[in-house]
Nucleic acid binder design. Structure first.
Length: 267
DNA sequence: GCCCAGGTATAAA
DNA sequence: TTTATACATGGG
């Protein structure tokens, strides 16, 4: 069934392809996605988001997880005092930070390290096909409990290389309760990051992306080589301090903007 | 073959 | 405390 949501100032494509999500598969004029346990075909016509899913509840959950109901007008107003951010907001117009499940985000960004997007997509796809639950031809993201029951060699079909060990370690630390979702969501940012970095293979970058995209921590700032280059180019002294509560969103706008200049290959 | 990919752990300086 | 290298895999 098709469900429609009014979502002004929202861009489905920018949101799905700004580097936070790896499970969108083009299908006709839209995309098949699996999000928060719901599979859906999503598309957009003007200010209207169309979610094709099995029931209204699922469709709403998907739209919510996409951030389609989030209003960034106050945030954009806050950022608008800054010339670079104005240009970045234009480049990333309509993007939203998604609300992805914590464990799924963590595993996705563990897989992303020293890797490229097409291959990340393939590995996650195989992970879901092998160990997720099949419903109607779509696979859920496997639970921490399920993956915790496996060993490294079980992940061989994923061809994820050295990351297999990290995936198993993360799953076991989640399944055992050693990493607590409530803590990750509510503790001071540095403590939440430290909690995630107990996992082998999780450093500051993966932790920060997990916090931003999977724990609604909009203040989390996934600094990496790419962003550092862009930031060094745009800001001598870092982001303006008043942007701190939304540094993650600012960073995501800048990421999209910087990518359009190919800063990745600059010295 | 060589280089790189939204990194991280480890071993040297 | 900072700087170099290996790490699995696959595409350009």
């Amino acid at each position: 069934m098709n469900f429609y949501f009014e979502s002004p100032e929202f861009s489905l494509e920018r949101t799905l392809f700004c580097g936070q999500y790896f499970r969108a598969v083009p299908c006709g004029s839209g995309y098949n996605i699996v999000l928060c346990g719901h599979s859906a075909l999503v598309s957009q016509e003007g200010d209207r988001l169309c979610v094709s899913s099995d029931c209204l509840q699922s469709a709403e959950a998907v739209a919510r997880a996409l951030g389609a109901f989030d209003d960034y007008s106050d945030i954009r107003r806050l950022f608008s005092c800054d010339d670079t951010m104005n240009a970045a907001m234009q480049a990333g117009c309509g993007l939203r930070i998604m609300h992805q499940p914590l464990f799924e985000t963590l595993i996705s960004f563990i897989i992303s390290q020293n890797n490229n997007i097409p291959r990340i997509t393939g590995i996650i796809s195989r992970l879901c096909e092998h160990f997720g639950d099949n419903s109607g031809g779509f696979y859920s993201f496997p639970s921490a409990k399920r993956l915790a029951s496996l060993c490294e060699s079980d992940l061989a079909p994923l061809r994820c290389g050295f990351r297999a060990r990290y995936i198993i370690d993360a799953s076991r630390k989640f399944a055992s309760g050693m990493i607590d979702e409530g803590f990750v969501r509510t503790a001071p940012l540095a403590d939440a990051a430290a909690s995630l970095m107990q996992i082998v293979g999780v450093g500051p970058k993966v932790a920060a992306c997990t916090l931003l995209f999977g724990a609604d921590r909009l203040d989390s700032f996934p600094e990496d080589v790419w962003i550092k280059r862009a930031m060094a180019h745009f800001y001598k002294n870092g982001l303006p301090p008043q942007f701190a509560p939304y540094a993650g969103i600012a960073q995501q706008y800048i990421f999209v903007y910087a990518r359009s200049f190919d800063f990745g290959s600059e010295g």
